[in-house]
Amino acid sequence: MEQTAPTRPGTKIGPKYFLFNLLNGVAIGIVAGLIPNAILGEILKALVPFHPVFTQLLHVTTAIQFAVPCLIGALVAYRLKFTPLGIAVVSAASFMGSGAVVLKGHTWVITGIGDLINTMFAAALASLMILFIGERFGSLNLIILPTFVAVLTGYIALHTLPYVKLVTSAIGHMVNSFTELQPIPMCILISLVYASIVISPISTAALSMAIGIEGLAAGSASIGIAAVEAVLTVGTLGVNRLGVPMTIFLGGVKMMLPNLVRHPIIFLPITTTAAVTGFVASLIGIGGTKESAGFGIIGLVGPINAFRFLGNGNFMIKTVLVALAFFVVPFITAIIAHFIYSKVLKLYDKEIFRFID
């Protein structure tokens, strides 16, 4: 039975319980906010010229992404069994701590989904403060929690934001340094880096836009993400209901973040598959843009841009090459890697891929 976290004074919960529910809330919040645009975005863009309704639908699916910080806060608080007031407070604190809204002149502007690492920090800080306060103030909590917890957490998180962003900057500098290498090692290394990032709270799309990754480097980034989607889709089949691998295949890889923290060995098939697919991508010449680099096969953004990058060659040959790089090689490699590591070497059991909602 799942542990309940009441908010009475003196309440103590284990750090593992707190961390797991924090990560689970973050993972589900990211998936809930980003999946609509990931699935429908490219389709709606193609349909926009045919009817104004598709433009409106595209605006809706795009705007849903901006709710990610609030969704993360709400779901973290929900996982910790907070009251509706506690859920609202953590949600508000996460939104402010994300840095998604900034003051430009006299106007507040939403700039995107913010920094997900700082969002997670804000959600954790607000949750810990609520657990500490508990019910000490009784009915006055209705005033104290929104006024002090939300405001104080938001204020602290806004001051940690510039330092947290340095993590993204450091990764960006590392990725840019790889672009100076020869094509094959460059593609493999960038594929490995993006495969590691996409399953973390860091946004690969935001990172790609920030560093302006292009060409073969962008294609390799997209291939690394496709490798993770393949590994987690294959891994979750058979131990979860069909909806879990389907969600992962459609872009919800971050929902497995709690599993990765509990079982870091999941990185083994991920890095193996990413290295192999990165190597193949370098031979084929898979490219992309900074807009497509952070998506992999999500919404077919990566394959579509890779197809364009291959130039004006034979349509069928280009289609086969793109399918080979994004689907055939990643999934076959993932299946082989899972078989070797779980059946032959017995390094892990498939139960490590069971998603706990």
Rank of each mutant, 00 (worst) to 15 (best):
Glu2Gly: 01
Arg8Ser: 15
Gly10Trp: 13
Gly10Lys: 15
Lys12Ala: 11
Lys12Tyr: 13
Phe18Cys: 01
Leu19Arg: 13
Asn21Asp: 02
Leu34Val: 08
Leu34Ala: 11
Glu42Gly: 09
Lys45Asp: 07
Leu58Ile: 05
His59Leu: 08
Thr62Gly: 14
Thr62Met: 12
Val68Asp: 03
Cys70Leu: 14
Ile72Phe: 07
Leu80Glu: 00
Lys81His: 08
Leu85Phe: 01
Ile87Gln: 04
Ala88Arg: 00
Val89Leu: 02
Val89Gly: 00
Gly99Gln: 01
Thr107Gln: 13
Thr107Ala: 05
Trp108Thr: 08
Trp108Asp: 03
Val109Asp: 07
Thr111Asp: 00
Gly112Ala: 12
Asn118Lys: 08
Thr119Met: 04
Phe121Gly: 01
Ala123Lys: 04
Leu125Cys: 10
Leu128Met: 15
Ile130His: 05
Leu131Cys: 12
Ile133Lys: 14
Ile133Pro: 14
Phe137Trp: 12
Leu142Trp: 09
Leu142Gly: 08
Ile144Ser: 01
Pro146Cys: 06
Thr147Tyr: 00
Ala150Leu: 11
Val151Pro: 12
Val151Trp: 15
Thr153Cys: 12
Tyr155Gln: 09
Ile156Cys: 14
Ile156His: 06
Thr160Cys: 14
Pro162Arg: 08
Lys165Phe: 00
Leu166Arg: 13
Ile171Thr: 03
Gly172Ile: 09
Asn176Ala: 14
Thr179Ser: 13
Glu180Trp: 11
Pro185Tyr: 14
Met186Pro: 15
Val193Ser: 10
Ala195Tyr: 10
Ala195Val: 08
Ser196Leu: 14
Ile197Asp: 05
Ser203Ile: 03
Ala205Glu: 11
Ala205Gln: 11
Leu207Val: 04
Leu207Tyr: 03
Leu216Asp: 10
Leu216Thr: 12
Ala217Arg: 07
Ala227Leu: 02
Ala227Gly: 10
Glu229Asp: 15
Leu232Gln: 06
Gly235Cys: 04
Thr236Asp: 12
Gly238Thr: 11
Val239Glu: 01
Arg241Tyr: 14
Arg241Lys: 13
Leu242His: 05
Val244Lys: 07
Leu250Asn: 04
Leu250Val: 05
Lys254Val: 09
Val261Asn: 00
Arg262Cys: 03
Pro264Gly: 06
Phe267Ile: 04
Pro269Met: 01
Val276Ala: 00
Ala281Asp: 13
Ser282Cys: 03
Gly285His: 07
Ile286Cys: 02
Gly288Tyr: 11
Gly294Arg: 05
Val301Asp: 03
Gly302Asn: 12
Ile304Arg: 00
Phe307Asp: 10
Arg308Tyr: 09
Leu310His: 10
Gly311Ala: 15
Gly313Asp: 05
Phe315Leu: 15
Phe315Val: 09
Leu321Ser: 14
Leu321Thr: 13
Leu321Asn: 12
Phe327Thr: 08
Val328Met: 02
Ala334Met: 05
Ile335Ser: 14
Ile336Arg: 02
Ile336Pro: 03
Ile336Trp: 04
Ile340Ala: 06
Tyr341Cys: 05
Ser342Pro: 14
Lys343Glu: 02
Asp349Ser: 10
Asp349Gly: 06
Ile356Thr: 05
